[in-house]
Structures are given as C-alpha cells and as structure tokens.
Design a protein around this nucleic acid. Structure first.
Lengths: 342, 342
DNA sequence: CTGAAAGCGCTTACAG
DNA sequence: CTGAAAGCGCTTACAG
C-alpha cells in the first residue's frame, strides 16, 4: 500500500506539498498540484486514517448510540444517519445498548477516551450527568434524538402533543368512547414517551369533556402480539367497548386491527384505530397514524452534527442546551372514520 | 484528557512500562503493574485509538457492508454482529450500499485504503474481482454472508435446498397444486437468492412428478403489499387456484395470508402458505417457515472474523476460498395443513 | 508556493 | 523486568 512518501517521491515534491495539494486547503502551485494528483491516482493513495487522526485530532467518524438496531423505528433512523454521513465522507460507528449497564459504561467512558469519534448521536438515549461530564472532558459534542437532555442539544417530537393530536382526530370524527393502548415502559424508554403520549391523550379527552373507563387505559409491549391481546380484551364486551382506540405505535395498531377482525368487527365501521410512527406496514394495513418521519430525523441529525463540527467554537463548551422540536403529521388512512350511529 | 505520559509520571515509571503493564502481554513486575493500574484508573486513562493503530497496525474495528439496514433481515443480522463484536472490544463501522455504485467504489477503494478496519463482513454483497484484489493489497480479510464468493470465506444457507425443503413440506402434506411467489431480483440480490429458491421449488416438484401452471410462478418485490396483489391473483379463480403457496419471504407469506382472508378463504383450510426467514411477525401470523436464524448468523460471523484475525498467517494470502453451509430449519405453524378433500 | 522538521500518542525491538 | 529511542504516517507552524 502506497504511503505519502511514495507519492512525494513519484511526484518529485516533499510530503508537505503532497499533503497540501491533496487536502486543497493550502495554496499549492497548479503544476505541483497536478503532479501530486496524478501520482496519487497512479499509486491509488489515500491518507491513512490513524495517521491523519493522530496529526489533526479529527476522526471523521461519528458514533451512533441506540438501544436497539433491529426495531423498525431505530433501523430506519440509522439508515437515514448513515446515508447522510457517508455522503459527507464521515464514517459511522455503531454502539447499541442492548448489552446492559456495563456495556454502556464502556461506551461512554472507555470508548470515548479512545477518541474514536468526533461526535455522538444518541437516539432515544438520555445520557447521565456523569456521562455528559465525560463527553465534555473529551471534547465530544453529542446530539440527542427523542427527548430533552439537560445541557445538550436535542431534536425531539413533542410526545404529549402527538398523543393529543391523535386523540383529537378521533374526537373530531365524533367519537366519545376512546381507549388507549399505551406502551409499557422498559428501561430502554429513557424519555418516557409512552407516558407522555398517554398524557396527551388524557389532556385531549379532558379538553373535550369526555370521560374514560379504567379498562380503556390499556398497556402493551409495543408488539403486534401484545396489542392483539389487549385489543381483544378492549373490544370483546360490546357493551363497554370503546368505538375508537389510540395505539401508541403502528405495530400495536395493526395488532388491534387483527384483533377486531378476529372478533368479526369491521374497521373502521365498528371501531376506529389510530397508530403512531407511520411504519412501513401502516400503508398496507390502512392505518391512520401520526407520522414522525424517522428517516428524515436521521438525515437531519447527521446534517446537524456535521455542521456543529464545522463551527465548533474552542471558547465555548462543546455541549450546550438547545432543544429543537421535530414536527409531526397526521396521516389519515382507512382505519378511522366517524362512529356509526346506534 | 490524560495521555500515557501523565500515567507514567504519576506511576513513576516509563511510558514503555505503562504500555506493557496495561496491555498485559509482556512481563512487568507486580509492583509496577499495580502502580500503573492505579495511576491509569485515577486519571481515567485509555490509550488513544489512532496512536495505538498507527503503532500496531491494528484498528480493533470491523467494517460491515450491507445493501440495506432498514429491512428486518439485515437489521437483525447487524444486531447480532454488533453485540458479539462489542463483547470482544471491537468497534463496528457500518457501510451501506444504498448510495449506488459510486458509494460502493468509495467503500472498497478509498475507505479500504484509509485502513480504518481490520476486516470486513459483507452481508448479501458479492465483491467483484477488483474489489477482492484491493482487499488483498490492503491485507484486509473479508467474510461473506449469503452466498459463495470465489476466493473468499463465506457462510451461507443453501438457498436451493431451502426452496426444496419448503416445497417438500407442502408435498408431504399431500398438496399437488403448489404455487410460488418468488422475489423479483434487484441488483441488490447479488447472489440471486430468489432464483435459487425457485429452482429448489422446481426440483422438488419434479422429483414428486408434479406439474405447474405458468400462472403459479409468480413474483413480487419481497413486501407484504406486493405479495398481497400476487396472492389475490393466484387465489381469485378458484378453478385454477393452487392449494398451497410457497412465498420466498415471511413478509410475502403474510401478504398472501391477508389476501386469502380478504377473499374469504381460510388458511390453512383452503390454502396452505409457507414462508421463509422466521421473521419476527411469523409467529403472530402463524406462518410456517424455513428459519435461517438471522441473529445467529450475525453473531457467528463476528466470532468467525475475530478468530480469523487472531490466527492470520502472514505467509498466506489474507483471503482464501472457504464456503461453509449455514443450517436451516423447518418451523411448522398454523398456515400449512393437508389439503381438504374435494 | 515550498521543504525540513517537529509533533500527534502510542508500541516495541534493543540493550541492559 | 525496565528505559531510551525509533518508528508508525500523516499535518502544519516555521522559515525561506
């Protein structure tokens, strides 16, 4: 493999000139530049990343931390981030948190110290104060997705509002008996999205002066199978059944749709169902949903971080608090309609 | 951030001793080792990755190349690889090929030259001869998943056999009218899995002396929605309809199940459906399938690569041909049964 | 515009 | 077992 020395020799210049010609940042004569470029092409030369990093302190690599990579929402965000980063010549190093606390410690302490990344994007992960302190020492900025982080930059949807908008859609259609299937909260949901969405649901109901039965506040594990069971419970007893259900994810909404079908109920005639996310499958199953454009969240985060790195002010702390709201959008499909008069 | 110099000073030894004590590879007196370890802990020291790499040539980083990250199968493999790598102190740099040919050139030529990774894992990507040559020059081993690669190590399921096993299951149940919904072949399917699965299907039918109607050889784009349409076409005309369908993925199998339902048909009473992959949702929809344990394929690949790196022989070419077959397993659920007598 | 040289922060023969 | 020093392959003040 060719090194800078080989290129310099072939081009008949010094390694300093090779470096300058290739980086394009410093002034080099057109002649020297051409010679260097030809030599580099001929030798198929690219600067070694480790030497570059050691000399400049820049890795051109971004670390992405997320609790899962194999769930739809996260994989789509990852795809968005990756595509944007590679376009700008950045690499992406993936850290997932499924390995537990010890894993997490390793990432935020050891790996940060190793200086492998220029910045972090944390998806649905809320760094602790200690972790933020560690990042500050290492001079690594972090951008959070999914919720506010005290002392760091974030972009996140207003989950409470999302719950409100979803519920309001059902109210606007004329429903008065509205249930929710909220998500159970594992430790992975560090921003308590399920709680916030339910809060929005409750606020919307309150504003419309509607009441709720205790059984209408259901919870499932964000899977189709889990929501299917809850959906059946909710819809079984036709006397006390709601006419509309807000499921905190599209996968859960689909589970409820399947439950309704298996009970011989028609959607949206007998029951309206709204989900959240605008999952790949939402269109196929006709799920009305609150879209939060996961992929765009990913590309946006990547852009944001690259910009940040470009204008990092050495006199300022690397991480400052700055919360940006990410827009949501109601996507109406065929799973919601006005309740049938009885 | 503390460097090795700081640790050496605090521990009262040379940087050489610090390095040796911390790596554990060379003999260091117990006393010196303790002093160094304490100093390192106190200063929260971890060796800088770029300096380590520059000095040793090792990055402790593995590159993963895949055509998508946001499709279920790929995201699960990625999860498997990542978990295993991080356990062994390796980082994972993700490259996805959705950016087209120019992107791919960048990855296999520029990025390889940058020496950012110790090895590659390529999932469902078949490197060209030029790309392999480039890897050989750079001394980077590659492990392929998904199909044989001339001149490289791979582990892959025998796709033809998978198609055969799936079809044979339907034959064993007594079906004689068996259709297939194969996958359309985009450029992303570099190993022609859909073709191979269909070939297995045809071989099984031939061995059983069964005949096929031309309309029974359907194709869809690997999505539920695409397979739904094909499923409807296949099942609509009850006179010519098959009694069993092999769908080349579980998502497509689910699409067919939905199509059958919407036609008022019962699964498996009126039609048996078998898929492939053992997708997350297969259980919920009761899909009989050919499992290929995606996650285990990922962890296995990671282990394989780490071992490989440990015993790399400097006298041998980094990449030698070596194809390992990955086992599949028939998982019987409720979407298949014997045909009802008419 | 250009080159000689220092420096980035480690590891590892070499000599003791 | 331990230290002084070279070397990994770049970039970038510095001087010209």
């Amino acid at each position: 493999m060719a090194g800078i020395e080989d290129v310099a020799k072939l081009a008949g210049v010094s390694t300093a000139t090779v470096s300058r010609a290739l980086s394009g940042k410093n002034s080099v004569s057109a002649k020297a530049k051409a010679k260097v470029e030809n030599a580099a092409r001929e030798l198929n030369y690219t600067a070694s990343a480790s030497a570059y990093t050691l000399a400049t302190g820049r890795t051109r690599n971004i670390g992405v931390v997320m609790p899962f990579v194999d769930r739809w929402f996260f994989s789509v965000i990852l795809e968005g981030i990756e595509t944007e980063l590679i376009d700008h010549g950045y690499d992406l190093t993936l850290y997932n948190l499924s390995g537990g606390l010890e894993q997490r410690r390793k990432i935020f302490f050891e790996f940060v110290n190793r200086k492998r990344v220029d910045a972090f994007i944390a998806v649905a992960v809320k760094p602790t104060e200690d972790e933020l302190k560690q990042l500050a020492i290492a001079g690594i900025p972090i951008l959070g997705l999914g919720g506010p982080i005290p002392g760091a930059r974030t972009v996140a949807v207003d989950e409470t509002n999302a719950g409100k908008v979803a519920t309001q859609h059902l109210i606007d259609l004329g429903h008065t008996r509205i249930a929710i299937i909220s998500g159970t909260i594992g430790q992975e949901m560090e921003f308590h999205q399920p709680n916030l969405r339910r809060q929005g649901y409750l606020e919307a109901l309150k504003a419309a002066d509607l009441s709720v039965k205790a059984t209408w506040l259901a919870e499932a594990d964000f899977t189709m199978a889990g929501a299917y069971i809850e959906g059946k419970k909710l819809l079984q007893d036709r006397g006390s059944a709601p006419t509309a259900i807000f499921a905190a994810s599209d996968e859960m909404a689909i589970g409820v749709i399947m439950a309704a079908r298996d009970l011989g109920l028609s959607v949206p005639k007998d029951v309206s169902i709204i989900g959240m996310d605008n999952h790949d499958l939402a269109d196929f199953f006709g799920v009305t949903t609150i879209s939060q454009s996961a992929r765009a969240q990913g590309t946006n985060a990547a852009k944001h971080v690259i910009e940040l790195l470009d204008r990092l002010d050495p006199n300022q702390p690397v991480n400052i608090e700055e919360n940006e709201e990410w827009p949501i959008e109601l996507v109406v499909r065929t799973s919601t309609a006005a309740p049938t008069q009885k």
